[in-house]
Design a protein around this nucleic acid. Structure first.
Lengths: 67, 67
DNA sequence: TAAGTATGGAAAGTAAACTTTACATTTCGA
DNA sequence: TCGAAATGTAAAGTTTACTTTCCATACTTA
């Protein structure tokens, strides 16, 4: 699964750490999502979508059989 | 987080086991989601959304601070 | 009533999301 | 070009999603 987190975050001009605080997760979690080390939980995906005022589907790109 | 899985599944007239097979998860996973014992991973949420031809947001209802 | 079918749910184990800590590397303004 | 700020990433531990196995219950239907 790919995502637009880094792009969206930079558009807003905020640091990983600031986004992490807003989402109530660690900075490392945001970094790991941006760099594709793992996928978010659905709860974190919802929070990110709400934060960026977009749908989950617009931020996270699901490709069949991607892990 | 609440969801409409049981309702959607019954509308289609399919069994938990059939939905489980289509999603490539166990029957117990579907039952656990329907009965709110835990939340799906984002990958499973995407698969379910694609299956029911709806958005994740229309199937899963996120309420602030719900675990 | 008896047997089969669908669902509920527990227990124990595995996998993946997430944390904290720690350190290295990149970036950038002064 | 120096130092601080931002980011990358790994290791070890916790939590939660998910599996397999198992048994109980409810609902048909013959």
């Amino acid at each position: 699964m790919k995502n637009k987190l880094e792009e969206l975050r930079k558009e807003r001009g905020i640091k990983q750490e600031e986004l992490a605080e807003a989402m109530e997760v660690s900075r490392q979690t945001i970094g790991s999502l941006e760099n594709g080390r793992y996928n978010p939980s659905i709860l974190l995906a919802f929070k990110l979508a709400r934060y960026f005022e977009m749908s989950i589907e617009d931020i996270f790109i699901y490709e069949e059989d991607s892990e």
